[in-house]
Nucleic acid binder design. Structure first.
Length: 655
RNA sequence: GCCGGUGUAGCUCAGUGGUAGAGCAACGCUUUCGUAAAGCGUAGGUCGUCGGUUCAAAUCCGACCACCGGCUCCA
């Protein structure tokens, strides 16, 4: 006699086991028609056709693009349709694994021949056939033995089945797209939508390689990515978002705006051009200012350090593969991949008192890491980069305050780029299986980090087991203007590196005893290269005035105003405004067009009228006319906006 | 590093075995112009690199390099 509680608190009593479909029907036939699944007690999602045999709170899931549960169901089912289409078109295909993921789903499989984008139209056509047939997804449960028998010819599925049994399943479920024993079936735990007809808005997106179980030494599989939405509108919006991301691509804008380039012969290293370096320096100066305000001292440590130092820090053993090394007079050296050892070496100069703690050391640390060639990605993933790095050497007791202060500093910084607390996702990564330190200290430090986040007005989720072997960490992910996440900030507790067995950073405590510090590794922007890449995409190259490479362009209408234009330029330049004059023989319309396409923040049109009255005709990048202020007013407006670090309209964050 | 794709002028791209093209940008001349493209002209390429097939290769084959999408990696 299950009692079913609905989301609005209403309770339905049934005389016997009911299916999700029957509950939906009981609520209303309209709902029944739109229902695709049911969610139990906020957790498990179940097929509409399966019984609900116990009291539970349920949500009937309907096909909606804004419901993650609905998308999960649709995409999981669409993965089956994709797999069926490929198996039909390419007989002999072995299936491995096909889960829903962010933005869609994939299916890992081994086709008889390599698949490429050229195969997509045929696959999509076959999928649409399956969808048009509107065949039901039918769940068939088999005993372990029978289930294994059904997968015996399929090594990956067989492996999956065995794993499921090991995890404690007492039977194995298969889903048939249509009639059992007749239509295509796949070992799968479900759940699925009622029938293939729900999957009209699906699309094959990409092909990629993947390994079985993600293991490089295991079989190489083909991964086909697809996506599915509740309706065409959702799919179209998704495709538009992809187009939008392409428009904002930092590599494209970097070229267009002449910010940087990367030489083909020198992969992973950025050549910053004047425009790009202007932004880079502005970022660095900004962070320097923030760090000073938060009690950091700035240092600079060598780029090349001897092997012996890296051996003591443990990097030579654990991080060797990612380090560029060199040699001089028979001694090995490495280019630094991290700044932490250098900072500890500075700390260790001279005897430190408890009064010196916490010591907050910052460095715009230029690091090189030998990233795998396939991992390189524009300026987002490079081999040479600069971090807004910092290490806080302190006592255990100071950790929580230091982390809380850090969180506040971080939210202040992110706000200046338009990322309010609602755009910052925080993850607390806790103790991994392989770790040092006792459980009591992990309990304490994990709690300290969590409490520090909360006290800064942020919320966090826990990633169990994701911490480093020596301590827990926080990771801060920014959500950009088009909804993508970028992990930037981090703070990580480390008692290992400053410990006795490593670099042995000590201080004399109040009681005269020598004790080891703990250390917090922390960064807010992370790699400046990457952060700048993120900003390019976030702002679509239309930087706030304080960051923009070309803040003002003066457009004389004819050569007669060039003298006036130069005088205006000199006025602005006195205040270090980044300004140019367009002296080309073009007509005004062409100059305006170019200035706007170049994403210049403001342009000042000066013709005969303005020259006579000492004014400028002011306009912004968006093409809004902003009146004809006098030169003094114009300069004042520009300087005020720079000083404010004002963000583009619509991106400002409320206090 | 692995899988799939791509590589032609500064940029965007056309060119499937027979004399390397277009638009934009650049440069020159004319125009001196009032808010998203004035007109005419000139110049610009070892077709990613190396090797092979062929009378002949941007085009076909092989190797390598870089980039793109993923995977992996990120003590």
């Amino acid at each position: 006699m299950p009692r079913i509680t609905l989301p609005d608190g209403k309770v339905l009593d049934f005389s016997g086991p009911v299916t999700g479909a029957q509950v939906a029907e009981a609520i209303g036939p309209g709902l029944r028609k739109r229902a695709i699944g049911v969610k139990l007690d906020g957790g498990e999602i179940r097929d509409l056709s399966r019984p609900l045999d116990q009291d539970c709170a349920i949500k009937i899931i309907t096909a909606k693009d804004d419901d993650p549960d609905a998308l999960y169901l649709l995409r999981h089912s669409a993965a089956h349709v994709l797999a069926e289409a490929i198996c039909t078109l390419f007989p002999g295909t072995r299936l491995a694994y096909g889960p829903p993921v962010d933005d869609g789903f994939f299916y890992d499989l081994k086709p008889p021949r390599p698949l490429s984008e050229a195969d997509f139209p045929a696959i999509e056509a076959k999928m649409q056939e399956i969808v048009a047939a509107d065949r039901p997804f039918v769940r068939c449960d088999y005993s372990a033995q029978e289930g294994l028998q059904r997968t015996k010819d399929d090594i990956y599925k067989r492996d999956n089945a065995e794993r499921a049994l090991q995890k404690g399943s007492d039977n194995l479920s298969f889903y048939v797209s249509g009639k059992p024993g007749h239509d295509w079936e796949d070992l799968c735990m479900g759940p699925h939508v009622p029938s293939t007809g729900w999957l009209k808005a699906s699309k094959v997106m990409a092909v990629a390689g993947a390994y079985w179980h993600g293991d490089q030494n295991s079989d190489q599989l083909t991964r086909i990515y697809g996506t599915c939405f509740a309706d065409e509108k959702g799919l179209k919006a998704h495709l538009n978002r992809i187009e939008e991301a392409k428009r904002r691509n930092h590599r494209k804008l970097g070229k267009e705006m002449n910010l940087f380039h990367i030489e083909e012969d020198n992969p992973g290293q950025v050549f910053w051009h004047p425009n790009g370096w202007t932004i880079y320096v502005a970022l660095m100066e900004y962070m320097r200012h923030r760090q000073r305000k938060n009690g950091y001292v700035e240092v600079h440590t060598p780029s090349v350090m001897a092997r012996s130092l890296w051996e003591r820090s443990g990097h030579w053993e654990k991080y060797r593969e990612n380090m560029f090394t060199t040699e001089s007079e028979k001694r090995d050296f490495a280019i630094k991949p991290m700044n932490c050892p250098g900072h500890i070496l500075i700390f260790k100069q001279g005897l430190k008192s408890y009064r010196d703690l916490p010591m907050r050391i910052s460095e715009f640390g230029s690091c090189c890491r030998n990233e795998a060639s396939g991992a390189l990605h524009g300026i987002m993933r490079v081999r040479g980069f600069v971090q807004d790095d910092g290490h806080i050497l302190c006592t255990d007791a100071q950790v929580q305050d230091e982390v809380a202060n850090f969180c506040r500093m971080l939210t202040d910084v992110y706000k200046d780029f338009g990322f309010g607390v609602d755009k910052i996702a925080v993850k607390l990564a806790t103790r991994p299986a392989q770790r040092i330190g006792d459980d009591a200290s992990w309990d304490r430090t994990e709690k300290a980090l969590g409490d520090a986040v909360t006290s800064a007005g942020l919320k966090y989720t826990v990633s169990p087991g994701e911490g480093a072997f020596y301590g827990p960490k926080l990771e801060f992910t920014l959500v950009d203007a088009i909804g993508r996440g970028w992990q930037c900030g981090t703070i990580q507790l480390d008692p290992n590196l400053p410990g006795k067995d490593r670099l042995d950073a000590t201080y004399i405590d109040q009681d005269g005893q020598k004790r080891n510090c703990v250390m917090l590794h922390r960064a807010i922007l992370g790699s400046l290269e990457r952060f700048l890449g993120i900003l390019i995409e976030h702002f679509e190259g239309k930087f706030p005035l304080w960051l923009a490479p070309e803040q003002v362009r003066i457009l004389p209408i004819s050569d007669a105003q060039i003298g006036y234009a130069h005088a205006l330029r000199d006025r602005l330049q006195e205040h270090a405004v980044r300004v140019t004059v367009d002296e080309k023989a073009d007509m005004l319309g062409a100059k305006v067009r170019e200035a706007r396409l170049a994403r210049v923040n403001y342009f000042a049109v000066v013709g005969g009228k303005e020259a006579e009255t000492g004014c400028v005709a002011m306009q912004n990048q968006q093409g809004e006319k902003l009146g004809t202020p006098t030169v003094d007013e114009f300069v004042a407006r520009i300087l005020a906006e720079i000083a404010d670090k004002r963000l583009p309209a619509g991106m400002r964050v409320a206090d």
